[in-house]
Amino acid sequence: MSKIHVANRQIVRPGDLLAEGEDVKGGDYTYRVGDRVYASVLGLASVDNGVVSIIPLEGSPLPREGDIVIGLVTGVGITNWVVDIRAPYKAILNASEALESFNPITDDLRKYIDVGDYIIAKIIVFDRTRNPMLTVKGKGLGKITEGIVIDIKPSRVPRVIGKKKTMLNVLIETTGCSIVVGQNGRVWIRCPNKQLEDIVVRAIHKIEEEAHIPGLTDRVKKFIEEEKKRAGL
């Protein structure tokens, strides 16, 4: 016999009892003691098919292989760059994952990507024994040379993208901007003009604030339309 004590999208805190029973399963950000399942972070409960998990409202998830991230280069070595991806671990981009051919004796990595540059990269390797390894070889990956990059709470990334990318599409279609959302809570935005860029940034911050309230997609659409009107666009 199992009993689930929380409703879908209910706010829970560490130590909250989510469910009891042998057959109830605990998903992400929960833990089990005997037949009781508890929350381990502050977040929203997600109840789906007898599995209770938590969507965190704070903190950043650990990087995963395959994640697209926007990194900030903080160091350059002889054969690699050190990249801050807003995770507990610094990431490494080897020269071989950025350049076709590279000779450490004659080439200076700083010519290609320097400290202070943003890059859109993919995590190719990450396990318990080492730091995340990146690549910028691939479609849509590489050094960022135009537009702006803003930081958002990594826990809000799923909301900014939306189920089946609905929210992201709203942002792109209503403004005509190019937007890439890194799993690590950085967003790259390139807009036809400064006013649209400003509207997108404010729309994204609105999503951050109201992530836990339903009906957000429609509200954001309405917000952008009104702001565009006010700016005469």
């Binding site: 805190r13 560490p14 130590g15 950000y29 833990y31 508890y38 381990s40 972070v41 502050l42 965190p56 409202l57 704070e58 903190g59 950043s60 826990s155």
Partner: peptide, 11 residues
Amino acid sequence: VADAGIPMRDL
């Protein structure tokens, strides 16, 4: 610690 989103057993 909870505000930082670090998983913990209980407050």
